[in-house]
């Protein structure tokens, strides 16, 4: 069993590596298709063609594409993603400072979504009737409302009208944990509306499916108390799809944070990609795409391991 587990992990790691590589190539090609050469972008308008050519030459822009890619890849695996064309700063350092912002945002929103979603989803499935319809209706609304619109409403209600939370900005955890939490509150709540609704639906459907299983009848036939059937046995059965839904949610929120970061002026990865795309800052775009892919692939890997652990059938085989 130890051996098969090791084999499984190795296989999955290789698959993950392949995914990251595919994306790296894709990102490289996309970036090369961007309008403007690095020289033109970094020197800005008004630069002489000669100066531009010189920069391009120095950066290897005229080398064959594969050579350029492998040069980039070579430094990338050593943690060097190049320098920004706009301000000359190291892309790796910039992204490293931004990653915690987006990660806190996505993780916070995922946790809140999971708590809200599992709570509401289980309640809807267990209570049924009117409660189920109300929760279903609210969840239906919540998935239909765009996050940025919900965000503005929250800003209006909680920051403008009653200044409970700061409307914008981000305070690093190291400076002040309390302010960090406060600065995250609004964006996290904003993202958790849609996320919570999504997980609530997932949880409800999975719980109902669990309750249709025949072993639930066996449990009732042996006088198992209702609470135990619901919260030990059915929830345990439903845990696999729920966990998958939560992981999925994290991935989506990680990408979706670009909207929250724009709305709440947070210096995260989303803001970085938005800026660098607008300014055609090729190394930055490439860096963000790769970092984001690594995060997504890692989450998927963790999900698969979690699934393997949660499901006795998979665990044993």
């Amino acid at each position: 069993m130890e051996v098969t587990m090791a084999l499984f992990i190795t296989k999955r790691l290789l698959m993950a590596l392949a995914t990251v590589l595919v994306v790296a190539v894709l990102a490289f090609l996309l970036v090369h298709a961007m309008p403007g050469s690095p020289g033109a972008v970094s020197l800005g308008a008004g630069a002489s063609q000669q100066a531009i050519d010189e920069v391009n030459q120095r950066m290897g822009w005229n080398d064959p594409l594969p050579a350029q890619f492998f040069t980039w890849l070579g430094s990338a695996v050593q943690g060097d993603l190049g320098v920004s064309l706009i301000d000359g700063r190291s892309v790796s350092a910039d992204l490293a400072s931004r990653l915690p912002v987006t990660a806190s945002l996505a993780a916070g929103a995922t946790v809140l979504s999971a708590v809200l979603g599992i709570g509401l989803g289980v309640t809807a499935a267990v209570r049924g009737g009117v409660v189920d319809r109300i929760i279903g209706g609210v969840a239906g609304m919540a998935v239909a409302l765009p996050a940025f619109w919900i965000g503005i409403i929250f800003v209006y209600l909680l920051a403008v009208q009653s200044s409970v939370f700061p409307a914008t900005g981000y305070v690093p955890f190291e400076s002040s944990p309390q302010d960090w939490a406060l600065s995250l509150a609004l964006p996290v709540i904003t993202l958790a509306v849609g996320g919570g609704a999504f997980i609530a639906r997932q949880t409800r459907a999975s719980m109902l499916e669990a309750l249709q299983q025949e072993h639930i009848r066996t449990l009732r036939a042996t006088a198992t108390p209702t609470w135990k059937i619901l919260y030990v046995h059915a929830l345990r059965y439903a845990s696999l799809p729920i966990v998958a839904g939560i992981a999925l949610q994290f991935i989506q929120l990680f990408g979706g944070s670009v909207i929250a970061e724009q709305l709440f002026a947070m210096p995260g990865l989303g803001q970085a990609v938005q800026n660098s795309v607008s300014t055609h800052d090729a190394p930055s775009v490439q860096g963000v795409v790769v970092i984001a892919t690594v995060v997504v692939v890692a989450v998927n890997l963790v999900l698969e391991l979690a699934t393997k652990f949660l499901d006795p059938k998979l665990r044993a085989s």
């Binding site: 995914t19 994306v23 894709l26 990102a27 996309l30 970036v31 961007m34 991935i251 990680f254 990408g255 979706g256 670009v258 990865l269 989303g270 990609v273 938005q274 660098s276 795309v277 055609h280 775009v285 490439q286 963000v288 795409v289 984001a292 892919t293 995060v295 997504v296 692939v297 998927n300």
Partner: peptide, 13 residues
Amino acid sequence: SLPGTVIILAVIG
């Protein structure tokens, strides 16, 4: 297993 949002933004670039 791709980060769709980021990729779409790169495409826009």
